[in-house]
Design a protein around this nucleic acid. Structure first.
Lengths: 300, 300
DNA sequence: TTTTATCATAGTTTAAATCTATTGATATTA
DNA sequence: TAATATCAATAGATTTAAACTATGATAAAA
C-alpha cells in the first residue's frame, strides 16, 4: 500500500526538480528522499524521474502520477482540516480568493468584522482573476471565493452575499456630470473607458454599456480600477464603477459618481466553496459576517 | 501527518463495528488495530469510537472523519490504479454496473468480445437499480455503468453506446398480435403490464404508454422482465420490452414481439464513468468493443 | 456462578525509515 | 588539462514505530 509520505516526496521533487531542495522542503535528508523515491519506483515498476546530470525531470508516467498524488494529498489535507474543525469549528486557516475589482473595496468593510468575530480563523487573502481563482478553488489551494457569480460556477456551492449597483463615473466637466441620476439611454453614443481583457467587470459592466449603444475607447484599456478612475478624472471619458469602489474613495472634486435610475446595472456578488467542503461551519460563519457587514452600504 | 494505513483501520471499524473483525479484514491482529486507533484518537484529540461493551459505535466526529477517510482511500486507490494502468493500460480489474432490464440481454452480446479482445482486463459485473449504481460509481466501488442516460447523470463522463427500440409484446391471441407493425395509437385503451417501482424501464417505457392513453394494470407489478414476459405469454395483458430482451428469447409460440412504426419508443443506452477517472484508455476500449458488438443488432 | 465475547494492556520482536559520511559522476572554472 | 563544485547514489549505523503473542479486565450470556 502506498504511503502518503511517499506521495509528498514525489510531489516535492515535481516541484523543485532537485533532490536536495525537495528533501529540505520535506524536512528529511537527501539520501532519505532519494531512497524512498527509488523504492517507490521499484514498487510501481515505473521510472518516474529522469536523472539527467544536473537536470532532474519527470517522465510522462511521473507527471501523470504526480497529478494523482496531488489528489491524494488534497484529500488527506481535508481529513486533517476536518479533524481540526471538529475540535473547534471556527478556527484554522482559511484562504479566500477575490477578484481585483472587488478586493480593495470590500475588504475594508468586512475584514474588521471577520477578524474580531472569527478571531480564531486566520484569513489569507488572494487577489486574482476569476479563472485562476476557480482553478485554485478546485485544487484546494483556496477555500472560499468572493466574486460575481457566473453559470460556469454551478459546480461549486454558492451563497449570495449582496447585489452591487454599478454607477457612472464622469469628470465634473462632462455633460452628464451634474445629473443626480442617469438612465440607460444616457449611455447612447458615449465613449466608455474599459478595463483590459480578463476582468469580469469588463464583460459585465461594459456589456451593459454596449447594449445601450455606447462605444468603447479602443485606444486605451486600463489594468486596474484605479487607473480607470484617474482616466475619468482626467476627462478622458466616462466609465461604470462598482459602487463599493466609490465609497470613501477619490477626490470628490475631480470625479462625479452618478447612480442609475432603476433598473440599475448591477453585479451579483456570491461566495463559493467546494461542494462537500469539510468546514462548512466556517464558511457559513463567514457568509453571515459578510452579509452583516455590507447591510446598509447599498441603501437607496 | 496522517497515514493511509490509519484511515484503513478507521474505515474498517466503521464497516464492521467490531475490532476483531476489522483487524481481520486488515490482516493484522486485534491489538495492533486497537492500538493504532487509539493513537489516532490521541493525535486528533478526538474520540472517534464509542466503546460500549459489546457494541461499538462511531461518534458523530468519527462518522464525519470516516467520510473524509474514504475520500482519501479512494484517491489513493486511483493512484495505484493509474500506476498499474501506466504499466499496461488495458489490464487490471474493471467493475461494471448494469441495470437488471439490460444486463442479462446485452451481456451475451458483449462479454465474448470484451473477454477475448481485452483479455488482460478482469471484468466484474454488478447488477443493480440505477440509483444504487450511481452512488457506487461515485464512491469508486464501480468504475463503469451501462444504463439509459438521464439528465441527473450529467456529473459523470458519458459515452453513448446505442439506441435500443422498445417493442410491443403480446400473446398470440391478442387482437394486435398479428400486425407486423404497431403505432402509438394502437396503445390507446390497452391494459399494460408494468415492472415494479424503481426500474427505470418502468418510468421510460410505461410513460410512453400512458401518454398514448394506455392503462396500467394496477393489480400486478412484475419484479423482473422475465416475470413480465411470462405474464404476457399467459395472456394477462401486453407490455413494452426492450428489443435486446426479445432476441433469441422466449418461445415464439407463446409470445409475439411487434415493432413500432417510427417514431419508435426507444431508450438511449450510455456508458458512464467518473470524470477524471484514471483509466480512460480502458474505458474507451470498452466503449469501442461494446459499440462494435452491438452494430447490426438493431438494423431495420 | 461459570463461560464466552470483546477490547485494552504489557512486553518483545521485527521491519523500515532515518541519519551521517562517503563515493561517483558530471559540469564548470582556473 | 587539472582542480573544483555540484548533486545524486550508496553504505552502514541508529532510531522509531508498528507488528506480534500472551494476558488481563469487563460485561453479557448460559
Amino acid at each position: 500500500m502506498i504511503k502518503i509520505r511517499d506521495l509528498k516526496y514525489l510531489t516535492a521533487i515535481a516541484e523543485y526538480k532537485h533532490f536536495g531542495h525537495a528533501a529540505e522542503a520535506c524536512f528529511v535528508s537527501q539520501p532519505t528522499l532519494s531512497g524512498q523515491i527509488q523504492k517507490l519506483e521499484q514498487r510501481l515498476k515505473l521510472t518516474l524521474i529522469e536523472r539527467q546530470p544536473r537536470n532532474i525531470m519527470l517522465t510522462p508516467a511521473g507527471e501523470q502520477l504526480v497529478q494523482q498524488a496531488r489528489q491524494v494529498l488534497n484529500a488527506a489535507n481535508n481529513f486533517e482540516e476536518a479533524a481540526k474543525a471538529l475540535l473547534d469549528p471556527l478556527s484554522g486557516d482559511l484562504h479566500i480568493g477575490l477578484i481585483p475589482t472587488l478586493a480593495p473595496y470590500i475588504l475594508p468593510h468586512i475584514m474588521p468584522a471577520l477578524n474580531s468575530n472569527l478571531a480564531k480563523i486566520n484569513f489569507y487573502l488572494h487577489e486574482n482573476r476569476t479563472q485562476d481563482l476557480l482553478q485554485q478553488l478546485e485544487t484546494g489551494k483556496l477555500d472560499i471565493l468572493i466574486l460575481p457569480w457566473l453559470p460556469e460556477m454551478a459546480r461549486f456551492e454558492r451563497y449570495d452575499l449582496f447585489t452591487e449597483p454599478l454607477v457612472m463615473a464622469t469628470s465634473p466637466s462632462h455633460p452628464l456630470a451634474n445629473k443626480t441620476k442617469v438612465t440607460f439611454d444616457d449611455l447612447h453614443n458615449q465613449k466608455i473607458l474599459t478595463l483590459e481583457d480578463g476582468h469580469c467587470l469588463r464583460d459585465q459592466a461594459m456589456g451593459y454599456c454596449f447594449s445601450a449603444g455606447a462605444e468603447e475607447d479602443h485606444s486605451f484599456r486600463a489594468t486596474s480600477l484605479e487607473t480607470l478612475r484617474y482616466m475619468v478624472a482626467s476627462n478622458m471619458g466616462i466609465t461604470l464603477l462598482p459602487q463599493l469602489a466609490t465609497i470613501n474613495y477619490a477626490p470628490q472634486k475631480h470625479i462625479n459618481y452618478i447612480p442609475f435610475e432603476s433598473p440599475q446595472p448591477v453585479r451579483e456578488i456570491s461566495l463559493l466553496c467546494r461542494a462537500g467542503y469539510a468546514r462548512m461551519e466556517s464558511v457559513r460563519a463567514v457568509v453571515n459576517e459578510v452579509r452583516q457587514a455590507v447591510t446598509g452600504l447599498f441603501d437607496e
